[in-house]
C-alpha cells in the first residue's frame, strides 16, 4: 500500500467525499456518501476510516472544500470548490481547458489555465434551474430512477421544449405536459436540453477554451454529456472519478502546501 501524503474532503450539498493521495499526487483512496445533515459527524466518521486505513493522521495535510468546508474544524485550510475542481481536473487530465461542474446546488464553468490556475469562472443564476438538484427532483416526480435519467432521456425520438428556467415555472410546465399525456422520455430530453442551454450560456460568458471537461455527480449522466457535445460541438472529456474532483483537488492543494 502506498503511503498517504495528503487528504482532501468535499462537503457538498448532495454528497460528501474524501480522497487520499500519495506523494506523487495519485489518488489512492476515497469514500463517498450521501450528505449527512450532521456534517461534522460525517467528517469525523470519514477521518476515523482514514485513520483505520493509514494510521495516525497528525502529520497529514488536510484541506476541506464544498459548501460545508467551514464546518471541517480539523482542516488546515479551506478552499472553494472552484479552485479545487480546477486543480483536481488539471492534475488528472494534464491540460488547461474549460471545466463544467454541475453540482447539487450550483453549476459552474471554470476556465483553467496553466498549472490548474483559475483564469475565470461563472456560476448559475439563483433562479435558474441549472443544477443537479433540479434534475433529481424531476426524476423523483416522474418516477425515473436517478441513474436511469440520462439513458431514458436519450431514448426519446423527439423532445418537448421546456422554456422556463425558473424552477417553479419549469415544474409547472412539466406537470402540464404529463397531464396532457406526453410520455416521460421527450419531457426528460427537453429538460436536459434546457439545463444544457443554461450551461452553454455560462460557457459563452467566460469564453470556451478547449478542451471541454465535465466533473461533478451529473457527469455520469450520459444525456448531459451528449447534449453538451451537441450544443458546443466540442468533445467532452471526463476524469475517471468526476464526483471526486473537488476532494481530489483539495488533497492536491494540501500536498503542495504541506
Amino acid at each position: 500500500m502506498k503511503a498517504l501524503a495528503a487528504l482532501g474532503i468535499d462537503v457538498g450539498s448532495s454528497t460528501c467525499k474524501i480522497v487520499g493521495v500519495d506523494e506523487s499526487g495519485e489518488l489512492i483512496w476515497h469514500l463517498l456518501e450521501q450528505a449527512d445533515p450532521r456534517a461534522e459527524d460525517q467528517v469525523q466518521r470519514f477521518l476515523k476510516a482514514a485513520e483505520q486505513k493509514f494510521g495516525p493522521l497528525k502529520a497529514v495535510p488536510f484541506v476541506a472544500t464544498g459548501y460545508g468546508r467551514k464546518l471541517v474544524k480539523d482542516a488546515a485550510k479551506n478552499i472553494t470548490e472552484i479552485s479545487c475542481h480546477a486543480k483536481g481536473v488539471y492534475h488528472e487530465l494534464q491540460k488547461p481547458g474549460t471545466l463544467v461542474d454541475i453540482g447539487g446546488q450550483d453549476s459552474k464553468v471554470i476556465v483553467i489555465g496553466a498549472g490548474g490556475r483559475v483564469v475565470d469562472f461563472a456560476m448559475n443564476d439563483k433562479c435558474a434551474a441549472g443544477t443537479g438538484r433540479f434534475l433529481e427532483n424531476t426524476a423523483g416526480r416522474l418516477h425515473v430512477p436517478l441513474e436511469a435519467l440520462g439513458k431514458t432521456a436519450l431514448s426519446a425520438d423527439r423532445e418537448e421544449t421546456i422554456s422556463s428556467t425558473c424552477t417553479v415555472f419549469a415544474e409547472s410546465e412539466i406537470i402540464s405536459l404529463v397531464a396532457h399525456g406526453v410520455a416521460v422520455e421527450p419531457i426528460l430530453k427537453g429538460l436536459h436540453r434546457s439545463l444544457v442551454s443554461r450551461i452553454v450560456a455560462m460557457i459563452r460568458s467566460v469564453g470556451l477554451v478547449s478542451p471541454l471537461m465535465l466533473s461533478g455527480g451529473v457527469a455520469r449522466n450520459e444525456a448531459m454529456r451528449k447534449l453538451l457535445e451537441e450544443e458546443t460541438g466540442e468533445k467532452v472529456h471526463l476524469p475517471q472519478y468526476p464526483q471526486l474532483m473537488g476532494a481530489y483537488g483539495a488533497a492536491l492543494i494540501g500536498l503542495k502546501n504541506g
Binding site: 422554456s163 422556463s164 428556467t165 425558473c166 415555472f169 409547472s172 402540464s176
Partner: peptide, 9 residues
Amino acid sequence: DPRSYSDQQ
C-alpha cells in the same frame, strides 16, 4: 421573455 411565464399558471 417566455421563460418568465407559464401557460399553466
